[in-house]
Design a protein around this nucleic acid. Sequence first.
DNA 1: ACAAATACTGTTTTT
DNA 2: CAGTATTTGT
Length: 724
Amino acid sequence: MTTDLLSELNPEQQQAVSAPEKHLLILAGAGSGKTRVLVHRIAWLIEQERISPYGVLAVTFTNKAAHEMRHRVEAMLGMPTQGMWIGTFHGIAHRILRTHWQEAGLVQNFQILDSDDQLRVIKRVMRELHVDEKELAPRLAQWFINQNKDEGVRSQHCDDKGQSEHQWLRKIYEEYEIACQTGGMIDFAEMLLRVHELLRDQPQVLQHFQQRFQFILVDEFQDTNTIQYAWLKQLASDNATVMIVGDDDQSIYGWRGAKIENIHRFSKDFPDTRVIRLEQNYRSTSTILEAANAVIQNNDSRMGKELWTESEKGDPISVYRAFNEMDEARFIVDQIDSHHRLGTNYREQAILYRSNAQSRVFEEALLRARIPYRVYGGMRFYERAEIKDAMGYLRLISSRDDDSAFERVVNNPPRGIGEKTISEIRSHARGQRIPLWKAAQALVSDKVLTMRANNALVEFLTLIDNMAEHTNTLELHEQMDHVIHQSGLWKYISKTRSEKSKSRLENLEELVTAAKTFVPGDQLSELPKLSAFLSHAALEAGEGQANQSEDGVQLMTLHSAKGLEFPVVYLGGVEEGLFPSLRSIDSPEGLEEERRLCYVGMTRAMQKLYMCHAEVRRIHGREQYHRASRFIKEIPKELVAAVRLQTKVMRPQQSSSRATQLSTGINIPDTPFKLGQRVTHKKYGEGVILNFQGHGEHGSVLINFNSCGEKLMNLAYAKLEACV
DNA sequence: ACAAATACTGTTTTT
DNA sequence: CAGTATTTGT
């Protein structure tokens, strides 16, 4: 059994899995098998050390990682992971709060606010405080509140540094706390903070968990923030054995409050810690690894770690300098196509970019080439407006105090309850410190509203009450279906006949299906099914698209690519001002984080890495000129193959504002044309050949026409003639 | 009360 | 450019 567990591991991994020391700090480089080690360690503890699964707490950041870990542990042990707590920080906090809601000062059926809900509540609070949204952006207030909560700071303890802006932010924070408390709502940051305070103020609760969790394991430790670290210290106390796994070079969430310092602090706060480095990479070619190492070496604050590999050199890194973002996309799509012809599936190729906005150009190019693709990120299922509307009704049924849900659905679909009536309700609610629902009831019974408004409001209140009554015996999906129709939501959306409304209705149908197939995980099994479903929707917003099985090129941001690997990777927009982004370019810490992001991106590639940058790019409708990113220059020359040759010739200008260097005189294979040559086209007239791709009839050329600027055309179709 | 017209504003993301 | 938020008009 012992040999079974350790045989497939390298010496360092074996040490990590079987270490006798109390605490372990595993510095695991990209592609060094950290999840493997984590899973093996759990199996080791249970099979070798004979510890009880009840004593295990394994924490991750994403639901995906948690699911994967649970799955792999089960597969390895050959039995269900009953009793083991495996989940995200938030999932675990949620579970604790559901059982100890009373000690935590919550109402039993508290509702969870996602960041969209949170922002709405903040806006409402700001309006009530008469804070002008133009002078103080609600986003800033949201950032301020979350930042403080992540640091464990309540509004009373915010040090307003004398500045009036700070005082306003503090005031908004304070009112927001009250609004959440009266509405029975908690946001994501609040979940963690509440648990922290619960463990701090309720010794018997703390003791209970300290006794229970004898073995604590934390993944992606470089992403922990202050409150999560504090939490770990509370839970672990002196009894528990802790193992943390992380990579300081892959810390890319500093802007969200993550503290790399937590890794450094760990050995001090947890005595008898053994540090083990996993530096052998099993993913990439040595060329890719060497290049990534060279880039990350430019960061000063590192713990020191250098990845090595036994794999072969592989291809050089291709750097393509494109004319503009369309040319960049065209180049990448051409490469994808040729890799595909040579046997690499589309799903094994990924286009990674710095910001979501960049995906559009790639999508258009892929669409044109009829290559299937899948975009990750963006709007997720439970974040869609129509889904949140339907869920809003359910939330109100579940908790009438949920002000966030009340505001969302009270006049949606429009039922004659206008801004004036709503603000009456709001001010009454605020005056009495009661939820909006109760305020609305009070206004109705006091008969202070106009006939019209009163009737509309009564209709709404009875609608919710009736729906609650009629559906409490129904199955969840029947309940969902009932609510969608009785609320008038379905009718309202179908009234406007467009492509959009069609897909919205489909989404609502899918929501019913989701409710039908919903099975509460074991951490939610104690709750009523409706509450469990609502929590599930907030905690796991759901994947973007459904068609996972189809073979398609993967498009995502560099951030969401962390933890994944692909045989072929294309990094788009590797330009100064974009990556590193303009915002982080003048702070050393910001720049180092961008560099780590680049390191993450490069190390996603297994066999072939492309890095592309464009000379000109349209951003927010304006043309911007960028130089190649410094990160490209940090790669040793001998590892790079520049795709486009650079020789000196002037390109005729479309706007006469700029001269660009262009290679010239090179023959385009199997054609009578050369780069830099003047040609005429039937429709567009005279132009100059800027670039080409492929050869002969299959090739395409990029031409700058005098009449209409740059056009990419296929040589087989475009009847070009050389000029004299 | 609601629809249409105009002004504004843009990282990265999980929970 | 494109999406949202607020203002304007009926």
